[in-house]
Design a protein around this nucleic acid. Structure first.
Lengths: 177, 177
DNA sequence: AAAGATTGAACATTCAATCTTC
DNA sequence: GAAGATTGAATGTTCAATCTTT
């Protein structure tokens, strides 16, 4: 694949500095999600993914979104979203119906009960996000983290739409999260 | 819980900057693990967690570690580790036996075949880590990321041993307690 | 009795196959 | 036939209960 190319040879192993950076990253991506799940599970009986789904809907116009747009927003696969929304539907949090404009789409709507759950849950979740992520960092570090995340995101998936793009699909008045 | 305390009132919602930071974090913690899993699954038929387990053992003295120490190192629960090691054992990658020094402990050892798998897999994995995380960042950003990760780690779990501590357990001979 | 580890059942996730609508 | 979504089976994870050794 790169025969004949004239590249900087990258060392096959990580040096001590790089390993420390890498360790920080793995630790972050394993422990932070676990901590967020724990808080939401404890206080609201929701996984972080379920909460993201409901929060996404709560920000949308008419609290309604097509499944595929919602899947994009929560960065999950459509099959996964479908399973999770089925569970949320059984619990009365979300309702689904075919899109009248095009029957191939499915519209998911946050019910009144789902809305109340989000409204009741959001402050505690936001507080936890502040406590674990925002408060421990200086403003400068928050900016750095944004830039770093953006660079890694591009490397992981160059095709990926920017946050702003995805977010605009959602439209946004009343916004928990 | 905090009646009468004199605190800075924290706004219940995130402002635009904070939300951007938060979005970068959630995106990072959901997409990066998926990308790493994909590479390892494709090239070696291993999940990232399985790889971490085997890599941890490969660095240890005699390629052997007590299950509880290994669980600490890979930041997973003991039940989870036990299930995963059972699978790896069935595949001939790892062997278990009671610790002769104290029968309550179980010693897990990387087999010759497991070692060969790690040796064959590591370069590709390291290359992927470079490609997705290290290469897109400047040296300064790598330092920043380390500092940021450390701050968040402390917030998530103040009791948690520092990376250096956990790592030293790995390299140190099993201390007869 | 406590520490370390394992097990079994409930639950969640993944992926290919399928279904429906355009 | 293609796009959007769902389902079913296999796989993985979680958690409480259990077992063994000290």
């Amino acid at each position: 694949m790169l025969a004949g190319m004239d590249e900087l040879p990258e060392p096959p192993w990580l040096d001590e500095e790089e390993r420390a950076t890498w360790f920080a990253v793995t630790s972050l991506v394993t422990r932070l999600p676990a901590a967020l799940d724990a808080q939401l599970q404890r206080d609201a009986g929701l996984s972080h993914f379920e909460y993201q789904v409901m929060a996404g809907l709560s920000m949308a116009l008419d609290r309604t979104l097509r499944m595929s747009v919602l899947a994009d927003f929560v960065e999950g696969s459509l099959p996964r979203l479908s399973q999770v929304v089925s569970r949320l539907e059984r619990r009365g949090m979300v309702a689904r119906r075919p899109d009248p404009a095009d029957g191939r789409f499915t519209l998911a709507t946050l019910t009144e009960g789902g809305w109340k759950t989000v409204v009741a849950t959001a402050p505690g979740h936001v507080a936890e996000v502040r406590r674990l992520v925002l408060d421990p960092l200086t403003k400068a570090q928050q900016r750095q983290l944004r830039a770093i995340g953006e660079r890694i995101a591009v490397a992981v998936d160059p095709q990926r739409p920017s946050p702003a793009t995805v977010f605009s699909e959602i439209e946004a008045p009343p916004s928990p999260s």
